[in-house]
Structures are given as structure tokens and as C-alpha cells.
């Protein structure tokens, strides 16, 4: 047997052979397009003609134009708020299911949590508009109860509504990884912490929370990065002050017809979000190290 024949029979070759169609597809439809978007972001377009010469003009516009700066900062802020709210909402739920529910019923609870997620995405957002609206469910019931006389206006068509709606959309995605991490926490470690004299609260912060951190990090990443790219929620419930960078990207690609600028905005947003996520992961590792 030659060396090549031996290699071909080996595990590595078989695995690569099996994975190659999926890998090729992803390369062709993810890596190649991403590279093209990056290339596009360095080109310029005026009206319908594309100039394929390297230029930083788009990035200059994206980073210096006050409107884009403002949109970017707001998007980042909203994404962070959504992530914080989602994780804070999700953790107690994941904890409850992992620690307070009998093992047989856990799967049912997880299923219960994921059902609303399968309501049509657009409908869900629209229904929040109905709930939060001027004549909506909340205002209607509060006025019916006589708690308020005028409908509350601060709950729709602003950033609060965007944060609430996005948090609702993403909360199942945050619960699942935290739940999985909590399930992996060895229960005897928690008992040991109590046995060694920690109070319930202290043992939570010294044992349970650090051990479930991988789940919290996963949840944060899963929520934070995609949130920056949502343009439907801001459009439906955000009002003029709730628009985000993705709305601008969409606008550039579709109506404004300046795809290179749109590409530069998209790349910039992704870069910023990735950096923030990396900083978060780094801070977290530090926290876990210090908790030890």
C-alpha cells in the first residue's frame, strides 16, 4: 500500500470527504459573498455606475457623517440593552427550570418556552404594536381600570418598544444555552459550598453563577450579534427615533441604491459588534478567574 492509499483509507480523509459538500456550499455562499461585500465596501457607486477602484470614501462617510455615527451608537445601545434585558430575564427562567422542575418535566417546560417563538416573526412584532399602541391592550386596560386618564405614549414608537419587542423575540435563545450550562453544573458542588458554610446567596455567586457563565456568554453572543442586524422591529414599533443601523443598510441597498456605502456600514457594524463581544468575553474570563 502506498502512503497515499493509506491516507485515503484513514479517518482524516474520510471525514474531510464527508464534510466537503457542506463545507463547499458554505464557502461558496458565505465566505465568497462576504469577501465580495468587503470588496464592494471599498468601491464607489454614483447612481448606476460602479467604480472598481480602491477607495476609503465609504468608510469615511460611515464613520464621520453625524447621522451614521448617531445611528451606529443608538444601534449599539439598543443591542446592549436588549442583550442585558434578555439575559436578565432568561437567567431566572433557566434557573427555575433547571433547579426547581423535576427532570421528567424539564423537556416539557423548554418546549413551553419555545412555542411563542414559532409564531410568525412579523406577526409577533405587529402584535406588540397592538399591545403597546395608543388604543392598545395596555392603555385600554389601564384606562378601563381607571389607573390612567390619558393613554400612555412613551411605550410605543420609541426605543423602549424596540428593546421590549426584541427582548421578547430573543429570550428563548438566551434561555436554552443558560439552561444547558446550569444542567451541567454538578449538584454536589453546590451542596459542598453550602456544607462549607456559604449562605444561599453567596454560594450562588461563588459556585452556580461562575459555573454557568459559559451559558451566559453563549446567550449574550447569540442575542447581541444578530440583534444589530434587525430592521423589521425598529421599522414597525420604533418610530422615527427607534430606527437602527440595519434600517440604513437596508435603505442603501434598496431605495438609496448606494450598495457600497451599505456594505461599508454593514462591515463597520459587524466589526464593532464583534469587538464588543470579544471584550465582553475577555471581561468574563477575568471575572471567572477572580471568582476562583
Amino acid at each position: 500500500m502506498t502512503r497515499f492509499q493509506k491516507w485515503r483509507r484513514g479517518e482524516g480523509a474520510q471525514g474531510l470527504f464527508l464534510i466537503s459538500p457542506t463545507l463547499a456550499f458554505t464557502l461558496l455562499l458565505l465566505a465568497v459573498p462576504l469577501v465580495m461585500v468587503i470588496a464592494l465596501s471599498f468601491w464607489t457607486q454614483d447612481y448606476l455606475t460602479l467604480h472598481r477602484t480602491f477607495s476609503l470614501e465609504n468608510y469615511q462617510t460611515a464613520w464621520t457623517e453625524p447621522m451614521y455615527q448617531y445611528l451606529m451608537a443608538r444601534s449599539l445601545k439598543i443591542s446592549m440593552l436588549v442583550t442585558a434585558m434578555t439575559v436578565l430575564l432568561a437567567y431566572p427562567v433557566a434557573y427555575f427550570i433547571s433547579f426547581r422542575i423535576s427532570p421528567k418535566r424539564k423537556a416539557m417546560w423548554i418546549f413551553l418556552i419555545t412555542i411563542p417563538f414559532w409564531t410568525s416573526y412579523l406577526m409577533r412584532i405587529f402584535l406588540w404594536k397592538v399591545i403597546l399602541g395608543y388604543n392598545g391592550v395596555i392603555n385600554g386596560s389601564l384606562m378601563g381600570l381607571g389607573v390612567i386618564e390619558q393613554p400612555l405614549s412613551f411605550i410605543l414608537y420609541n426605543q423602549n418598544a424596540v428593546v421590549l419587542t426584541l427582548a421578547h423575540a430573543w429570550v428563548p435563545f438566551a434561555i436554552l444555552p443558560i439552561f444547558v450550562a446550569l444542567e451541567r453544573v454538578d449538584r454536589s458542588l453546590i451542596e459542598a459550598a453550602e456544607d462549607l458554610g456559604d449562605s444561599k446567596l453567596r454560594r450562588f455567586f461563588r459556585v452556580t453563577l461562575p459555573l454557568s457563565m459559559p451559558g451566559v456568554i453563549a446567550a449574550t453572543i447569540i442575542v447581541f450579534i444578530p440583534t444589530i442586524g434587525d430592521y423589521v422591529t425598529p421599522r414597525l414599533v420604533g418610530g422615527p427615533n427607534g430606527l437602527m443601523i440595519a434600517n440604513m443598510i437596508e435603505l442603501q441597498f434598496k431605495k438609496a441604491n448606494d450598495a457600497p456605502l451599505g456594505a461599508a456600514l454593514a462591515i463597520s457594524a459587524m466589526t464593532i459588534v464583534t469587538c464588543v463581544a470579544l471584550i465582553f468575553i475577555w471581561l468574563n474570563k477575568k471575572y471567572i478567574r477572580e471568582a476562583k
Partner: peptide, 24 residues
């Protein structure tokens, strides 16, 4: 990790990049 990447990538990025490729 690369194949699983679309799970965390904002969908707008995927939409935009495919749009660019198809148009180009």
C-alpha cells in the same frame, strides 16, 4: 465553527452578501 457561523451572523449580513453576489 465556520459551517455553524450563520447561526450567530445577523441575517441582514447574509441577505446583503448574497444579494451582492447574485447582482455582481
Amino acid at each position: 465553527g465556520f459551517i455553524m457561523l450563520p447561526m450567530v451572523l445577523p441575517e441582514i449580513i447574509i441577505g446583503v452578501s448574497l444579494l451582492v453576489v447574485i447582482i455582481q
